[in-house]
């Protein structure tokens, strides 16, 4: 039995008929075809599926898509500038090589984006706290911390 859902994804109004048990991450990936958001553990630990819900980072594997009814969802694809170029945070991740395989990267970007929306000059401890719900098996986090610091510094200059 399917149910209607209407929500905003990356600024665009989306309506769809889905099974109520469909998680938000499956909906994003399979119905909306936004495959930038990744599935890691499906039990809310690894953070690979992080998206912004009304500006706050959440786990899209722990939310049913119908629970997002009427909300605004932002995925990694929505972090680009209006002209399609990379956002400042994305560019900073590239500049410091804050990734290797790239699988956790979208979730990391979402977590860092949430932090920088709240804090213009976060300390290393605050950065680590913000990304501590996102597991990365490649980098050891150092170049991710560097990237968030760099992005914050660049944002302050803007």
């Amino acid at each position: 039995m399917k149910r209607a859902v209407t929500l905003t994804i990356n600024g665009e109004a989306i309506s769809s008929e889905i099974e109520p048990r469909t998680t938000l991450v499956d909906f994003l990936r399979e119905d909306v075809m936004l495959t930038g958001t990744h599935v890691g553990c499906e039990h809310g630990v690894c953070g690979a599926c992080s998206v912004l819900l009304d500006g706050t980072p959440i786990r899209s594997c722990l939310l049913f898509a119908i629970q997002a009814e009427g909300h605004e969802v932002t995925t990694v694809e929505g972090l680009v500038e209006e002209d399609g170029s990379l956002g400042l945070l994305q560019d900073s991740f590239w500049e410091t090589h804050a990734m290797q395989c790239g699988y956790c990267t979208p979730g990391m970007l979402i977590a860092a984006y949430g932090l920088l929306a709240e804090s213009a000059d976060p300390t290393e401890a605050e950065i680590r706290e913000a990304i501590s719900g996102n597991l990365c098996r490649c980098t050891g986090y150092v170049q991710i911390v560097d990237a968030v610091r760099l992005a914050a510094a660049r944002m302050r200059q803007q």
């Binding site: 990936r29 495959t35 930038g36 990694v76 990379l86 560019d91 991740f93 590239w94 790239g102 979208p106």
Partner: peptide, 19 residues
């Protein structure tokens, strides 16, 4: 030098098997 691969990963345009 910026690694060639990173551009697609930061934009969500990586192509993993589940994609």
């Amino acid at each position: 030098r910026r690694p060639k691969e990173d551009g697609r990963f930061v934009s969500g345009a990586g192509r993993f098997v589940a994609d």
